[in-house]
Amino acid sequence: MSGGRRPMVEVRGVRKSFGDVEVLHGVDLDVHAGEVATILGPSGSGKSTLLRTINHLERPDAGIVRVDGELMGYRRVGDRLHELKERAVLRQRARIGFVFQNFHLFPHLTAVENVAEAPVGALRRPRAEARREAAALLARVGLGDRLDAYPRQLSGGQQQRVAIARALGLSPRVLLFDEPTSALDPELVGEVLTTIRDLALGGTTMIVVTHEVGFAREIADTVVFMDRGHVVEQGPPAEVLDRPDHPRTRAFLAQVR
């Protein structure tokens, strides 16, 4: 999809404040196509906010985000950036998958309806075709036998896998995971991590905010460590996780281990 060496996701100088508190102090990040980046860091370090600025769920106060060369939320006219209307932003988002910590499945729709909703509603695919593809995606995350179950009839791990299938339904260029296992009972974490691992092996470009250090080491091409709104350190897991330069990284890793 992306030509040459241009990264799939480019984040440059992104700042974001909520009220008086600045949660992102000018963050830069590159993720190449087919690469898996995991973002680690203590709570309140701005990981989730960074992820949400990538698909423009949060509008950055300064800085820009490009996904597959497409500038998120703006259109360049000469040397000005014109803010896009909501409809155009929604269209951009339909190419980026987002998996929430609390799943946010649509409770009144069955698993297969949850997955087929966006292809029909956002990409205007024919309903029967979208349903067929949704069923195939659910089979891929191991839920081929629960197509007609409502979210409340599923376990947390199953719900999160439906949510992953729902994000995949848009054939996204990038998948963003916001702490996908934090709301799960410990014995259900494994099935979700397995699903994400399979996607990583399949070459999907992913950015994963997580607390699972072991998992990050296993799947990540790049580990990004954030603290207080800054990217403190980034690099291959062997460097960042095993020989961290920064004292904050060392302190954090000592705590979570």
């Binding site: 909501e86 988002r93 339909a94 929430f100 609390n102 946010h104 909703e117 956002a122």
Partner: peptide
């Protein structure tokens, strides 16, 4: 209705 529902719909790019 839980605000997460609208957020999820927005993240999927569903028209308003």
């Amino acid at each position: 209705v839980d605000s997460g529902q609208r957020e999820a719909a927005a993240a999927l790019g569903l028209p308003k």
